[in-house]
Design a protein around this nucleic acid. Structure first.
Lengths: 365, 365
DNA sequence: TTGAAAGCGCTAACAG
DNA sequence: CTGTTAGCGCTTTCAA
């Protein structure tokens, strides 16, 4: 009678009475048998009525669902997983929960998962391939699949794991594994064009970690674009992808006589901004800075950061939907070759803010 | 022989052979029976050797563990949960994954949980009491307990749920429920003293959501401190805790002729900074701004924000350790009255940065 | 100290 | 369309 959870936000107390009974209740857990007894059918019929409503007589189906509701029945996901082998949970591995970049990814995965009624297991691998492997192992029975947002494993390792575990990777491209790519190389090119249009002829790439696939990709894109546009490009680094690394990066950039930098990510770029101010190097008058990702903070730092805006949240969503499609397809058959090893590339665009400006009239390189 | 996961980071491929077999392996899953067969003992003995090593002969215990390792046995947490009723997972509910404040909380809970070998289920309730209730219900069998970091439920509701579900709340104080409080009221007082020392006599509180317990607490603290210090305090709001709300808040503050504001949180404060610049209101010359929490970004916005630094991550860690203590204690007995309803208050301190300065010589209030 | 047996709550054949 | 029968992998009495 009373819905398990009301949609009316105000009268919660009323509703709650029913809901409470079911909330992680240790006592008085209602099982499928109780519902069966109350309805006068077999437990298996209840199971069916709840999981595969089509395979049950319309009338009894409704009777059962009603009874389940009234009794405050909550399916036991453990038991369900044990028999079906499916947990309806997916693991999302990030390399550093602290990095704002992942906030958006996580938000995306969370949304998509929640929308589908799935659970998200969030794991912070803390930049360690080891921890990543360990997590993947422990997660074996806990999740039906995983999204690797910043794997520190080799392509071969990933591909190997993917053979037995539904996987989707973000910003990696191991063969045969579905992946979501954010087109930052395209963004790098736009960034360079932007700098060229401001009169820059020399650009410094502030490199991220060597272990980062994206970093290599961005650098390569920059080299290519530089050749095409007749711009000299150089690099400094590697720097760890933290705000704190920005100080060293800034010093290196100043030392190199750079007048324009494209950074591996916003974190480093923002760190540079701070350090440059300390050193009285004006941005953008003396040096232009371009970041990457457009994370939280890129728009209110000082000066606001010109950066490549990535559809990060969408990347998370797409990754999950690819995974779910695969997971849903597995039990039956259908799409096995084509759809499973697809790659989605999400576009990036340059957002110009205050940190880039005309090249200084005089500069040393 | 070969460890399941090596501690040496480089030779992963070698090790991986063993690990892979276990990684979410659909095929060839090694069960307790396989280990039993390999060791020539009964499954129940294997179970014991792995879960309650003390209750087994030392020699066989080691033999079993070795065999388990060699075979790449990974316990099935579902099955384990089904029989034992314990999942070794805890749910962490946040009201908005997007809010940097929670990043730190999540990091704290994650660390603490991972350290204890537990799994974290992250749930975004999206500011909805409904979703919160629903999540708590669905999580029933998935988690052994939950941390509510920003509950939108009433104290009574929370207390009721806590009767049947191990709960720890952050920044709330329902009676009988263990809670972790961040002493922002103390911070508010420090902030006010700071402003007074700069010559301010009138301070405006920029209010957060009415539904926020912390918000009321801060306002009350400010009123008290204002009385004590002879400062007039007023309030505007409520404003949603987003950067975007800052614009309206800034306009209201300007309209009120304020020269010093203490904001519900850094998000709003940062938003105000941006808007004030647009309106050519100088910070801190024309108006001082104080935030709360010291989130990511508070140190590099423009100007850097004077704010109350909260040990957010620690709050997450403490919450989890309180929950785990309770969870571990439950099966036995021991601490039932005292320790279970304790409250931990974490101190806050004021971090002065560029957004606060002397009161303008002339001002209208 | 160990083994045998009985389920945890549910799903999945297989009959009917 | 529905009931019966087996378990999923593990823990947990209860004997031995």
């Amino acid at each position: 009678m009373v819905p398990l959870v009301a949609t009316c936000g105000n009268r919660l107390p009323l509703v709650a009475r029913t809901a409470y009974g079911a909330v992680m209740s240790t006592t008085a857990k209602v099982t499928i048998r109780d519902v069966a007894r109350a309805t006068g059918v077999a437990p298996s019929t209840v199971s069916r009525a709840l999981s595969l409503p089509d395979r049950v007589n319309r009338a009894t189906q409704e009777r059962i669902q009603q009874a389940a509701k009234d009794l405050g029945y909550v399916p036991n996901s453990q038991a369900r997983a044990l028999t079906s082998g499916r947990t309806r949970a997916v693991a999302v591995l990030v390399s550093d929960i602290t990095n704002p970049f992942y906030f958006d990814v996580i938000r995306g995965t969370q949304h998509q998962l929640a929308g589908a009624g799935w659970t998200q297991l969030l794991v912070d691998t803390e930049e360690s391939a080891d921890a990543e492997l360990r997590a993947l192992t422990a997660l074996a029975t806990k999740a039906d699949g995983a999204v690797l947002t910043a794997s520190r494993l080799s392509d071969v390792q990933i591909a190997k794991i993917a053979e037995r575990t539904p996987l989707v990777v973000v910003n990696r491209r191991p063969s045969g594994v579905p992946s979501v790519l954010i087109d930052t190389p395209g963004g790098v090119e736009q960034a360079l064009e932007h700098l060229v249009s401001l009169g820059h002829h020399d650009v410094l790439y502030v490199s991220g970690p060597d272990t980062s696939w994206s970093n290599q990709r961005r650098w390569r894109a920059l080299v290519g674009a530089g050749r095409r546009l007749g711009v000299r490009v150089a690099r400094v680094g590697p720097y760890a992808p933290f705000v704190d690394s920005g100080a060293a990066a800034a010093d290196a950039a100043v030392n190199a006589g750079a007048t324009a930098c494209i950074c591996f990510n916003d974190l480093i770029a923002i760190g540079m901004l701070t350090r440059l101010r300390e050193r009285h190097v004006r941005v953008p008058e003396d040096m232009s800075i371009v970041g990457c990702d457009d994370i939280f903070g890129a728009d209110f730092c000082n000066p606001p950061l010109t950066t490549m805006t990535s559809p990060i949240e969408r990347a998370g969503r797409v990754a999950v939907s690819m995974l779910l499609a695969r997971l849903d397809a597995a039990p039956h058959d259908g799409l096995h070759g084509e759809q499973l090893r697809d790659t989605v590339v999400l576009p990036t665009h340059l957002t110009v803010r205050g940190s880039t400006g005309p090249a200084p009239a005089v500069h040393t390189v």
